[in-house]
């Protein structure tokens, strides 16, 4: 039978600090994820690799071809 695990005093003392840092990092990950999603889905006419307008996607006058 395993011996009961005793919580180290350090863990209780640093709980708020660790929780705060953990939540902050989780928020940061969420922000990066959210920004990536927004930037990709709202990219418009931008190309993914260099963020410049693709000439072939620019709307042209009717009858005009690229």
């Amino acid at each position: 039978m395993a011996a009961p695990r005793v919580e180290h005093e350090l863990h209780t003392r640093r709980f708020s600090r660790n929780l705060g840092v953990g939540l902050t990092l989780a928020c940061f990950v969420f922000i990066i994820f959210g920004l990536t999603y927004v930037k990709i889905t709202r990219g418009g006419l931008n190309q993914g690799f260099d963020h410049v307008v693709r000439p072939e996607l620019v709307p042209t006058q009717q009858g005009e071809s690229n």
């Binding site: 003392r13 640093r14 708020s16 600090r17 929780l19 705060g20 840092v21």
Partner: peptide, 12 residues
């Protein structure tokens, strides 16, 4: 002393 140790709120 441990009582002086910063909590997360102190960094905030």
């Amino acid at each position: 002393s441990f009582e002086d140790e910063a909590q997360f709120g102190d960094y905030v």
